[in-house]
Nucleic acid binder design. Structure first.
Length: 221
DNA sequence: ATCCCGAGGG
DNA sequence: CCCTCTGGAT
């Protein structure tokens, strides 16, 4: 068992080795970890990802067929009637803010990026409704650019694991990147997020069935 | 009641 | 740091 006292006195090298052991177990436990949003283009992915805020991917996937039939391109979405768009995405929650952001995103893409979804983090985060997390999801899953997508699951887990004590998502991202300089960061993100949803919940984590328990200082019997 | 693979704004 | 936006699932 690994205790917090162990973590306090473990060397940077020992911490790296422990983290990588845990990372290997995650990869073995979730070999199929992937983005669960349905999409066929960067435009569809960025749109679906904006909708996925505070909403399960399964529910997003229920509205995207109608959404992309009605607005097949950024140009079409940029010209959308807000009320009609809201009616399509209503069931994903936050529909007013999301509709506003979607139209703003599509307008910015058409007006400033020639109708193409930008391929850099700096450009993506200028789009309305796109923060660093959404930007990294798009980069990783639509453009094959490795990146850590630090959401609430990701941050909670790596702090519980004792990989870092940082709370700021950017600092968390850099700390984890330093621990896994040569791993597929997109996949590692999905593995952590799947684990957060399936076992390492915010409340009442299921340590009893967790394959990482032996290496985790937050293990509770 | 509480939670969803957030983002923007004060 | 906090708050708000929002609906549906459990």
């Amino acid at each position: 068992m690994t205790t917090w006292a162990d973590v306090e006195r473990e060397s940077p090298l020992a911490r790296t080795r422990r983290a990588r052991r845990m990372g290997r177990i995650l990869a073995e436990t979730y070999p199929e970890a992937h983005c669960e949003l349905d999409f066929r283009s960067p435009y569809q992915l960025i749109t679906a990802t904006i909708l996925s805020a505070q909403c399960t991917d399964a529910r997003v996937n229920r509205v995207t067929p109608a959404l992309f039939a009605r607005y097949p391109t950024p140009q079409a979405l940029a010209a959308a009637d807000p009320v009609e768009l809201e009616s399509i995405i209503r069931s994903t929650g936050f529909f007013r803010a999301k509709a506003r952001n979607l139209i703003g995103m599509a307008r910015t893409v058409t007006e400033r990026f020639g109708g193409e979804i930008p391929r850099t983090l700096d450009d993506l985060v200028t789009l309305p409704g796109v923060g660093r997390k959404t930007a990294n999801v798009v980069l990783g899953n639509a453009f094959g650019v490795p990146g850590l997508t630090v959401d609430t699951h990701f941050g909670r887990l790596v702090r519980r694991f004792g990989w870092t004590r940082e709370k700021d998502p950017v600092k968390v991202e850099f700390a984890v990147a330093a621990l896994f300089p040569r791993r597929d960061w997109t996949r590692l993100s999905h593995e952590l997020i799947w684990h957060g949803r399936r076992i390492c919940h915010a409340h009442r984590p299921e340590c009893g069935i967790c394959p990482l328990a032996r290496l985790c200082p937050s293990f509770e019997a």
